[in-house]
Amino acid sequence: MAENAVNETERMTITRVFDAPRELVWKAWTDPKYVMQWWGPKDFTAPVCKIDFRVGGKALFCMKSPDGQECWNGIEYIEIVPYEKIVSLMYFADAEGNKIDPAQVGYEHEVVEEAYDVTLFEDLGDGKTKLTFIGNEPMKDAAESGQLEGWKEIFEKVADVVAGLVRAK
């Protein structure tokens, strides 16, 4: 598997090529039992992951830091093209999934309001898949806030999950 590639364009963009068929990468990205294994940066856990994976559906995730601090995120799915594309809106949430002000959890600024995350799954042939995540925050802001580093760490965890799915196949 290739290292994470980071695109320095306006929006945070991270790309990784996996030695796995697109269906397995999609499964790792969308199935709650696998998402719980990678949601959050290195050393974080995901004790809660509920996904209603359909257009208009919502997801609720809890990311728990090594010191026990919980951070909740909600996602609303805007567009789903099976095995190709997911467009979603991520936001800070409370434990019930209600949108909250990021200042309530210690963030000074919110990502661009109503800017969507886009996740692309590209079949490269020969059992390889390119996963591209285009975040809702400008690259400069993502680097300064730590979001970029967090997503790089998440992609490492996704790679471990995908590798496990390949081995199990």
Rank of each mutant, 00 (worst) to 15 (best):
3 E>P: 07
3 E>K: 14
8 E>C: 04
15 T>M: 04
19 D>K: 09
21 P>R: 05
22 R>N: 07
24 L>Q: 12
34 Y>L: 05
35 V>W: 00
39 W>M: 15
39 W>S: 14
42 K>G: 05
43 D>E: 15
47 P>I: 05
48 V>C: 06
49 C>V: 14
50 K>F: 11
52 D>L: 11
52 D>Y: 12
52 D>I: 08
54 R>H: 14
55 V>E: 15
60 L>Q: 07
62 C>K: 07
62 C>P: 07
62 C>F: 05
63 M>E: 04
63 M>H: 03
64 K>S: 05
65 S>C: 06
65 S>V: 10
69 Q>R: 11
70 E>Q: 12
71 C>T: 13
72 W>D: 01
73 N>T: 12
74 G>C: 01
75 I>M: 10
76 E>C: 11
76 E>M: 14
77 Y>D: 06
84 E>L: 03
84 E>D: 08
88 S>M: 13
90 M>K: 06
90 M>D: 14
92 F>M: 11
93 A>W: 01
96 E>F: 00
101 D>I: 03
101 D>C: 05
106 G>D: 11
107 Y>Q: 11
110 E>R: 10
113 E>Q: 13
114 E>D: 13
115 A>T: 08
116 Y>I: 09
116 Y>N: 14
117 D>T: 12
119 T>D: 08
121 F>N: 07
123 D>G: 02
123 D>R: 01
124 L>W: 00
127 G>Y: 00
129 T>K: 00
130 K>G: 05
131 L>K: 04
136 N>W: 02
137 E>T: 15
138 P>Q: 07
138 P>C: 07
139 M>F: 15
140 K>I: 10
144 E>S: 15
148 L>W: 00
149 E>W: 07
152 K>N: 10
166 V>R: 00
167 R>Y: 06
168 A>M: 08
